[in-house]
């Protein structure tokens, strides 16, 4: 039950994009089309879960025993960067179609603050290993949901008559604001 709560909390109530402002760059940059937003969301989720696993292990098995917690930013970001590189190589070897679908998005994920944010939040909230994994899956699902919703709306926006000054980033931000308002409706659902 606890685990399901963590998942729902990360995916809906405390949505990474719309409540914590993590991963705004891809949220605004790659949300033009649903066909690229959804794979981007999946790729990010995949890296998030791996990051949750690896950074938890590093923090609890290396940094804490040796009392070098202050190295967490340097070590976490290196882990994320190398994980992304590694995932890219594996996908390229294993599945060419998947690589063609995700390939261009993978390097972008390194600088997605949602990934490093996830690793930091897991440390901050003192989650156990399994809780951390559920948190990662939930955060990824929330990111995928938000970016896909946004892409759907922006496809419709293409046809709308937006004032010239608001085209591009401004209207996207305003739409995101309305989405964030809508997501506030989930706030009463559970309290974590």
């Amino acid at each position: 039950m606890e685990l399901i709560l963590i998942f729902v909390s990360a995916a809906l109530v405390n949505n990474f994009v719309l409540a914590y402002f993590l991963g705004i760059c891809p949220f605004i940059g790659v949300s033009n089309k649903l066909s690229s937003a959804f794979p981007m969301g999946l790729a990010t989720t995949f890296v998030m879960v791996l990051t949750a696993i690896v950074t938890w292990l590093i923090y609890h098995l290396v940094l804490v025993p040796y009392n070098v917690e202050y190295l967490q930013y340097v070590s976490f970001i290196l882990v994320v960067a190398s994980l992304v590189q590694f995932v890219e190589m594996v996908i390229k070897k294993v599945s060419q179609p998947l690589y063609r679908a995700l390939g261009i998005f993978l390097p972008l994920i390194t600088t997605n603050c949602a990934i490093l944010g996830l690793a930091l939040f897991i440390v901050l909230k003192e989650y156990s290993f399994v809780e951390g994994i559920f948190y990662g899956v939930g955060a990824g699902a929330g990111f995928t949901l938000a970016i896909s919703l946004m892409a759907g709306i922006r496809e419709e926006l293409e046809l709308a008559d937006v004032p010239a000054a608001f085209r591009g980033a401004p209207i996207t931000l305003i739409v995101a604001g309305l989405l964030a308002l809508a997501f506030m409706g989930f706030a009463g659902m559970i309290t974590v």
Partner: peptide
Amino acid sequence: ILPAGAFLTLGLMMGGLNA
């Protein structure tokens, strides 16, 4: 001071500057 306000304010500021 809620997240939604941040998005809306920045969006309106950017739009205003562009105008």
